[in-house]
Design a protein around this nucleic acid. Structure first.
Length: 410
RNA sequence: CGGGGAGUAGUAUACCGGCAGUACGCGUGUUUUGGGAACACGUAGACCGGGUUCAAUUCCCGGCUCCCCGACCA
């Protein structure tokens, strides 16, 4: 991609109306634009990063046998009536021009359960699981913190169906393991925390919390063992003894990037989702649901990985692998060399953003730091046919040949 | 939804009851060329509605919008 042709541009100043670091940097860099409180447009650079996040999630979902689906955003009242979740305070509810009543999907237990009644009828159909990556709508009374709490956000929601509580428990643990893998691939260090189920279940649930001061949840966790609970349910407070091992307990803020719920028969019963067991008896299906918010993950990554110059993307999610800067020069050879390197990279399938703009070197360096692409390659009068390579998270530069660099990046 | 703050070119801001200024951006030209270059010329603006006033971007009232704290929440 040539930067001169990019749909967006970087700004020289921070947006005055944002305070959250993720929003400030992403808007300044032209990754996103705010359209309304808690409602953002994701522009090409952010779209590419999101695609990376989604691809990782998809791979890991598929690896545990979950199958991708797309469920409607317009969910008719009858579905919510069944589970008695019409008129919750988070739903955008409205009447269509024909008088039909809908809620914009803020979660999809109802829809997926209704669908499952068509296909699950025997223990032989179980277990099974379906997921989607889709925009969710929630009427947040107070959207805030950039991408961290929006009214419209991306969600990967997975729903599983089981013949027994034991099988659900097994899958629940499996998803926890998969989430650990996903978060690790995203370079996010998250703590597994016990929490309350909110509008979804009465059971305790688990959340993955990235500990950072900007997080809105408070986590109580043990400094020695794996005890960790959301403060909303924790019986101890920071500074006291761990109920599990007796060591000291701490309190810290966290961003909830993922969660897992044991739904049991909360939705299968109202939707009459039953299966016939091996003895010929009818039983309700046991369900679980599991979420990860890709747009929230994106915001969290910026909160965790940045410095005073800009974003520092982990390689796995960066919109491009390498940022090629051609420093302005009278000498035709500079442009020629840069163009050649650019084409080599594109041909080799290395994702490259080529800064071919007719602006000063300083501005290109500043933009490279702001955009946060992991590798910076400079071609200039100084470098000749070589390339000056620098990692975004390091101060050191070194001269390499285009061929060496290609080999390194592939 | 309670409390606080704020709305001025594309962006960031200043001043003011009487022609709205600066910087960045954008356009043209000359010079410059490794950490946000210089000069010249040009471009573009008061959230909406009402009130006070000879005169309102400025003061008052109402609305809308955005941010922050709280409640709520992935």
């Amino acid at each position: 991609m040539k930067q001169s042709k990019l749909f967006t541009k970087t700004a020289k100043t921070f947006p005055s109306e944002e305070e959250a670091v993720n929003a400030k940097l992403l808007i300044k860099g032209g990754y996103i634009r705010k359209m309304s409180a808690g409602i953002y447009s994701y522009l090409p650079l952010a779209r590419r990063a999101l695609d990376k996040i989604n691809a990782i999630i998809r791979e890991e979902m598929n690896a545990i046998g979950a199958q991708e689906v797309s469920l409607p955003a317009l969910v008719a009242k009858e579905y919510w009536d069944r589970s008695r979740r019409w008129h919750t305070d988070v739903a955008y509810e409205f009447k269509s021009p024909f008088g039909e009543e809908f809620a914009l999907g803020w979660t999809h237990e109802e829809v997926v359960t209704a669908i499952a009644t068509n296909f699950i009828s025997s223990y032989k159909d179980l277990p099974t699981a379906a997921y989607q990556i889709q925009t969710k709508f929630r009427a947040e009374p107070r959207a805030k913190s950039g991408l961290l709490r929006g009214r419209e956000f991306l969600m990967k929601d997975l729903y599983s169906f089981h013949a027994s509580k034991e099988d659900l428990d097994r899958y629940y643990q499996k998803v926890i393991g998969t989430y650990k893998k996903i978060l690790k691939r995203l370079s996010l260090d998250a703590k597994l925390v016990e929490a309350a189920g909110g509008a979804f279940t009465e059971d305790y649930t688990h959340e993955f919390q990235v500990l950072t001061p900007v997080g809105e949840d408070v986590i109580v966790y043990c400094t020695a063992c794996d005890y960790a609970q959301n403060k909303e349910i924790a019986l101890v407070r920071g500074g006291h003894r761990c109920p599990k091992c007796g060591a000291e307990v701490k309190e810290e803020n966290g961003i909830e990037v993922a969660n897992v719920f044991r739904l049991g028969t909360r939705y299968s019963e109202p939707f009459d989702l039953k299966f016939t067991n091996a003895k010929g008896d009818q039983q309700p299906v046991i369900m679980g649901s599991y979420g990860i918010g890709p747009t929230r993950v994106l915001g969290t990554l910026v909160e965790v990985f940045h410095d005073d110059r800009g974003i520092i993307w982990p390689e796995a999610v960066a919109p491009f692998k390498i940022h090629l800067l051609e420093l302005k020069s009278e000498e035709v050879s500079v442009r020629k060399n840069a163009e050649k390197v650019y084409k080599q990279f594109e041909k080799a399938g290395v994702e490259v953003l080529y800064d071919d703009r007719d602006i000063s070197a300083g501005e290109k360096f500043a933009d490279a730091d702001l955009l946060g692409i992991p590798w910076r390659a400079v071609v200039s009068e100084k470098t000749g046919a070589q390339i000056e390579l620098k990692a975004r998270n390091s101060k050191n530069t070194k001269l390499v040949s285009p061929e060496e660099l290609l080999k390194k990046l592939q």
